[in-house]
Design a protein around this nucleic acid. Structure first.
Lengths: 112, 112
DNA sequence: CCGGTATTTCTACATTGTAGAATCGACCGC
DNA sequence: GCGGTCGATTCTACAATGTAGAAATACCGG
């Protein structure tokens, strides 16, 4: 073990992973997209979400299974433990980056 | 003037911008790189840093000026107010994303 | 069956990130 | 003043990530 590669997740990768957590049990493509839009305020092409979900699953940070029965079949996602680790490492790295940096006065401070 | 485009900075863009803040007055390429490596623990090709600095300057989130005099000439960067805004918006967006999500139990929780 | 709706898949492309070699100029020892 | 080293920047080529929207699929109500 050890020697994690220490490369942070991409911005959308992180958003998708967190949205999967936030919508636990209902985490399929369209819903993940709605959740990201709702919570971040940006609006997002659906293709962006799916290609990211696919990539994340290929990297084994997510797993998916099909639902059948009522309504259209969905691909439901959940975090793997590797996914959870990637997320906490990304966060920890960013916390170190920002530690001690003042955000409040930032805009006021910068001239031009 | 409303209607900011609400697209978050890329991961390295954010790291570079924060590193410029952290090394205020000494923010030139090599030093920015050292600061990112020091604080995040990842190790980073120098080209990655310069191409990001260039891009950020093209977008007017940074300004640079040359230093002369003692030692090799450097390109010193500082945040513009647009840069400060981009940074705080990126942060705010992410805070909304994570609000209410439990990080602590995450790794423990995820099965597989 | 048909049109509408929700979902996923596909394809093409743009932006961002990575890697390392080439270049540049100041300084140093000789 | 010349070659060599050092700190710094520039350049070039490429890989990964992100974006956009149209096509396909399947269910549903009528």
């Amino acid at each position: 073990m050890g020697d994690a590669e220490l490369v942070p997740l991409g911005v959308l990768e992180e958003q998708v992973l967190v949205a999967v957590l936030r919508t636990r049990g209902e985490a399929y493509g369209m819903e993940v997209r709605r959740e990201i839009e709702r919570v971040t305020g940006r609006d997002l092409a659906i293709g962006a979400v799916y290609s990211t979900l696919d990539r994340l699953e290929a990297k084994r940070l997510l797993r998916s299974k099909r639902t059948f029965g009522d309504g259209p079949s969905r691909r439901l996602f959940e975090l793997s433990s590797a996914g959870a680790r990637a997320l906490t490492e990304t966060r920890a790295m960013r916390d170190r980056l920002w530690r001690g940096v003042d955000v409040g006065g930032l805009v006021a401070m910068a001239k031009g």
